[in-house]
């Protein structure tokens, strides 16, 4: 489904990703963990070409992602949920969900609204459809952002630290929605610090440090018996 081959990324002189090789299978739930600055967000952002790799290839559904085809390919395959939600503030919740389906996927307004309501129900925010994002709590905004990603009905959803900007008391409501989603046949790639979530949801966990994939494996292996020193050190700090 998603394949990164020998991906390298530089920001100026800074070597952020070093020879990343990674394959995500269809329907797989992949969780990427690691200290900040380890390149995990950049890895996910390369998967939809928000960052173009300096070298190497990103292959989606057997097709190489390039500057030329990125818009078409992204439009067909993936959606993204951001740390800071990035809802469109000038549009209502419902309009946030229907904009792309109407303008890009050429759905009629009625079809788009029907779909949007369905996914708002999925995230438990049906009663907020006419609210503007600024009137919602952080947790609610992120749930709307997830619904917006769902409403485009892509096979892949990329999550870039979806709970890092939230107040602690609203983290769980967002995680609950994501756990619910993980039961569907959607390919999910999640960058997160929520180890509890990783343990429940992940088919596979990847640990990154200093731009490299240090270790990967099943969550059980990871949390009970990691093989690499650096992984152990990181987990001991974060799990306590």
């Amino acid at each position: 489904m998603i394949k990164l081959q020998e991906v390298n990324k530089y920001f100026g002189d800074h070597h952020v990703l070093k020879d990343i090789n990674l394959t995500v299978a269809e329907g797989e739930k992949l969780v990427i963990i690691g200290p900040s600055g380890s390149g995990k967000s950049t890895t996910v952002r390369c998967m939809n070409f928000l960052e173009a790799p300096t070298s190497g290839q990103v292959i989606i559904d057997g097709e190489e992602l390039t500057q030329k085809n990125k818009i078409q390919l992204v439009r067909r395959t993936s959606a993204m949920v951001f740390q800071s939600f990035n809802l469109y503030p000038h549009k209502t919740v419902l309009e946030n969900l229907t904009l792309a389906p109407i303008k890009l996927q050429k759905l009629t307004k009625e079809e788009a609204i029907k779909k949007a309501r369905k996914y708002l129900a999925t995230v438990g925010l049906s009663e907020k459809e006419n609210a503007y994002p600024s009137t919602l709590s952080g947790g609610q905004q992120q749930r709307v952002a997830i619904a917006r990603a769902l409403a485009t009905e892509r096979k892949i959803i990329l999550f870039d630290e979806p709970t890092s900007a939230l107040d602690p008391e609203t983290v769980q409501e967002v995680l609950d929605v994501m756990i619910k989603l993980s039961k569907e046949n959607i390919t999910m790639v999640v960058v997160t610090h929520e180890m509890g979530f990783a343990r429940v949801v992940a088919d596979r966990v990847i640990f990154m440090d200093e731009g490299r994939i240090v270790e990967e494996g099943k969550p059980e292996h990871f949390f009970e018996n990691p093989s690499e020193e650096r992984t152990k050190l990181f987990l001991s700090k974060i799990l306590r």
Binding site: Q72, V74, A79, S84, N86, L87, K103, L104
Partner: peptide, 22 residues
């Protein structure tokens, strides 16, 4: 904020489209 452009790009909007709608 640059996040608005990123959200629009991630949804597949072209430059002209996201300027116009977002």
């Amino acid at each position: 904020s640059v996040g608005q452009v990123e959200a629009a790009k991630s949804q597949g909007f072209t430059y002209i489209q996201y300027m116009r709608y977002i």
